[in-house]
């Protein structure tokens, strides 16, 4: 058995391939490096890992879970959220691409713009409330509001497109 998964590390896509050898042993290729591990599944959802390479004989327990766009893993008391390359291309919630998205599931409290408005960068466009806290969502770029999908009082999912701002020509970025 052999499986491959891609992650983003330092802005670059890294392919991680785990290949089953025998017993509890796996060979893992990360880029051009090769590691070997003894991996034992624990009953509580964790996996005990022992690196078999030289100078890395410490055993550790890892816990992992898949996410919609990547995965989460807890190793040595630290949680890592690993992005899959596809998720990254979607752009940030802050709207550097002119799209303002809901950073979390919540309720739209206020819509402070309408189609056709000329807005400044960092100007508040929408106020969203989640878990009893208010969050101001601001324009990532200066430009003209082209679309307002947010409706006052409605519930929005994390990542939902709320406002689309068409950037001013002079400030348009290529990314």
């Amino acid at each position: 058995m052999k499986i491959t998964r891609e992650f983003v590390r330092d802005g670059k896509t890294v392919a991680v391939t785990a290949e089953f050898l025998e017993g509890d042993r796996w060979r893992v290729r990360i880029g051009d490096k090769v590691h070997e591990y003894e991996a034992k599944a624990l009953g509580d959802g964790g996996v005990k890992l022992q690196s078999l390479g030289e100078g890395a004989d410490r055993a550790f327990v890892a816990y992992g879970a898949p996410l919609a766009k990547g995965s989460m893993v807890r190793v040595d008391g630290r949680t890592w959220t690993l992005e899959a390359p596809a998720a990254r291309r979607g752009g940030g919630a802050a709207g550097g691409d002119g799209v303002v998205r809901a950073p979390m599931t919540g309720t739209v409290l206020e819509v402070a713009c309408k189609p056709g408005d000329v807005v400044e960068a960092k100007q508040t466009l929408v106020v969203v409330s989640a878990m009893k806290m208010e969050h101001k969502l601001t324009a990532g770029v200066a430009g003209t509001v082209r679309k307002v999908a947010a409706q006052k009082g409605s519930t929005v999912d994390q990542g939902a497109e709320l406002v689309v701002v068409e950037p001013n020509k002079s400030e348009e970025k290529t990314s």
Binding site: K33, K40, S71
Partner: peptide
């Protein structure tokens, strides 16, 4: 590397 390896092995075995 250990973190990335752990992420993949957890998804296979966890």
């Amino acid at each position: 590397d250990h973190t990335l390896a752990a992420a993949v092995l957890c998804q296979v075995l966890g």
